[in-house]
Amino acid sequence: MNEAPKNWFDQGGQHYAHFRPEYPAELATWLAGLVPDLDLAVDVGCGTGQFTTLLAKSFKQVLGIDPSQSQIAHATPLANVSYLCAPAEQLPVDDRCASLITAAQAAHWFQLPAFYDEVRRIAKPGAVLALITYGVLTLEAALNARFQQFYTDEIGPHWPPERALVDSGYATLPFPFDEQQAPALHIQHEWTLPQFLGYVSTWSAIRAAREAQGDAILTRFADDLAHAWGDPSTVRPVRWPIHLRLGTL
């Protein structure tokens, strides 16, 4: 295996697509089993189509919508998937045509009252709205305490305020719909130490911490974790809980 970089956090946020957690296919399949039909799913805040493409395996047509033209330009193409550039609060979708509306790791950026008005407008009777997020990752016990200290105490002040909504699993978001319970799901990867720290290096809080305080806190964390990890090429489980706010319209 190649030598790890001397400064783990110089790998850079531009590599997010390489390190990002991938949603399990069974989440999209389970959602498809809840809706009145499989004609159209609309994925709002779709980014480059990470979750959109999973929905394409179950639905006849899927529409991914994101306000960033750059994200849409790099979205994954599929025969039954279309992408449009638009804000969540002004969806370019016909009335009463969507059987499923999703927002994966995106709803904390929306102006929710306006988004919810759009959801009500485009939803078919019996359609489902799913707000999806994944929470704070966990590592093996020997590593997890040090990671949680780093995440909460050391770089915690550098997260944007919206991050608290993600960490709570969207529990505090207003959700004025007939809410349903969701099964316990998770994302899991088996990563080496360079892969794990490469992912951490993509966080906005890491960039903010470096700008505010330099590299000392980051270097100390990386050194501590490397000591506990052992051989950097050893793969270890990294696990994120999936949280959903799920409603029927």
Rank of each mutant, 00 (worst) to 15 (best):
92 P>N: 00
93 V>L: 08
94 D>R: 11
94 D>N: 09
95 D>I: 00
95 D>V: 06
96 R>A: 15
96 R>L: 10
96 R>D: 12
96 R>H: 14
97 C>L: 05
99 S>C: 14
101 I>T: 13
104 A>L: 07
104 A>P: 10
105 Q>W: 08
106 A>N: 04
108 H>Y: 14
108 H>G: 01
109 W>P: 13
109 W>D: 10
110 F>T: 00
111 Q>P: 02
111 Q>E: 15
111 Q>D: 15
112 L>W: 08
113 P>D: 00
114 A>S: 12
116 Y>H: 14
118 E>F: 06
118 E>V: 04
118 E>H: 03
119 V>R: 00
119 V>W: 10
120 R>H: 14
121 R>C: 08
122 I>F: 10
122 I>P: 01
122 I>L: 12
124 K>N: 05
124 K>A: 04
125 P>H: 10
126 G>S: 05
127 A>R: 01
127 A>I: 04
127 A>M: 08
128 V>C: 10
128 V>P: 01
129 L>T: 05
131 L>Q: 07
131 L>M: 12
133 T>K: 08
133 T>C: 15
134 Y>D: 02
134 Y>R: 10
135 G>L: 03
135 G>R: 07
136 V>H: 04
138 T>Y: 05
138 T>N: 13
139 L>I: 05
140 E>V: 05
140 E>L: 14
141 A>N: 13
141 A>Y: 04
142 A>E: 15
142 A>L: 11
143 L>Y: 07
144 N>H: 12
145 A>W: 06
145 A>C: 04
145 A>H: 13
145 A>S: 12
146 R>P: 09
147 F>M: 11
147 F>A: 02
148 Q>L: 15
148 Q>S: 11
148 Q>R: 15
149 Q>N: 13
151 Y>G: 00
151 Y>H: 14
152 T>D: 11
153 D>K: 12
154 E>W: 10
154 E>F: 02
154 E>Q: 13
157 P>Q: 00
157 P>A: 01
161 P>N: 03
161 P>L: 01
161 P>F: 05
163 R>Y: 06
164 A>C: 03
165 L>M: 11
165 L>V: 07
165 L>T: 06
166 V>S: 06
166 V>G: 01
167 D>M: 08
